[in-house]
Design a protein around this nucleic acid. Sequence first.
DNA 1: ACATGAATGGAACGGCGTTCCAAATACACA
DNA 2: TGTGTATTTGGAACGCCGTTCCATTCATGT
Lengths: 223, 223
Amino acid sequence: MTNKTQRSERRADALSKDKIVEAAIAILDTDGEAALTFRALAARLSTGSGAIYWHVADKSDLLMAATDAIISRVMANVVVADGPANSIRAIALGVFDAIDTHPWVGAQLAGEPWQAAMGQILERIGRQLQALGVPQHAQFNAASSLLNFILGVAGQNAAAARLKGRVTDRSAFLASVAAQWTQRDPSEYPFVRQVAAQLLDHDDRQQFLAGIDLILAGIGTLR
Amino acid sequence: MTNKTQRSERRADALSKDKIVEAAIAILDTDGEAALTFRALAARLSTGSGAIYWHVADKSDLLMAATDAIISRVMANVVVADGPANSIRAIALGVFDAIDTHPWVGAQLAGEPWQAAMGQILERIGRQLQALGVPQHAQFNAASSLLNFILGVAGQNAAAARLKGRVTDRSAFLASVAAQWTQRDPSEYPFVRQVAAQLLDHDDRQQFLAGIDLILAGIGTLR
DNA sequence: ACATGAATGGAACGGCGTTCCAAATACACA
DNA sequence: TGTGTATTTGGAACGCCGTTCCATTCATGT
């Protein structure tokens, strides 16, 4: 009996959704979000765009599959131990580091709803919240708060990465940002000016973790 | 003395960045993000695309100006009173409602870094954190946590709005989302399945406020 | 051997953001 | 008031995109 799963290969390098997704990830990682076009993909796979569409519904489908693949790997490697709170920190940092390595993942997570990748993150976070003893009625809210914070950071990091390369002098760039923010009237932006001074030597990853801790502290008050 | 600001009008309906932004907002609100093209904009303004580029650097510049205009109006109307915590709730809800009314603002906030609109939100939140007595060294982290949470929700709401219209039956859609999330193996997604049941009759706005309260509670532990 | 349907690859389509440029208009000054 | 210069306009043109279409190739069951 020959079922569909064990069909012999059409060619040695036959096309498949997995191969296409793998190639897409390579392009995205190497040359950035804008470089992923069906033409570039077809060239890399030595085929035509029509053949790709046989395996993939459209570009959004492709990007969601690529994002899901990355998040799956991250979730498989995250070590959950040392108590639920630290497990949540580990999960969140896993996502953060993945976004740092693959900025396009951040853009995709932040801009596409109800993705498979989101389901994975939500599940992992939710289980740790249960282990943390969060009352059932508050679990959904707590999980979605953590998730939305992560998605917010994801979008900003992806956007910031899009700017890198175009910007050579970091401090000059940050100064121009501050200038733009206080453009209307510097005296109207005391807090932004205070923060702008800290912007130069702040660590995105550490600030991300501080945010997670803040939400965890809030969750701690629920009991 | 004739300076640049008081030049006589070229025509009664002369082009200006403000007029262009206003027209862009009208298109975005009426027909959605995808409908904003320079051709559509030129048609609405009875001009050519080249003329628009005289006043606006590119599409990103236009979208940032439109977003800034909406956020400025929101911030002008937000009533700050009843204590710093409630003021933060009011600011956050103001942004949430703006995103609900103009989903494209959500996409723009979530996907573009260092926008003028972000500076405005950050300033307003930061001042209330100072009023709340948050230690100075923690103010930046607290403000960025609130902001990133808001941006995360913004991105998801914008993405969800993009799906509306295409989706007629809400409950059938949510069921298919849950099915997709648990696709790998339903038994591996106990939390997601539990949450999926609550998805049908949950209120996005209320959940957003719960998230803000959670972070505020966490900030409360800093003192 | 042959019919069938899966899979391929490349041409073609319509639309996008952006650039270019000749024409039209407003302004400074003689 | 007339004229030269700078600003502003509007539409054609460019290159690239996602997607569709379709003739062709190939593995397979009968």
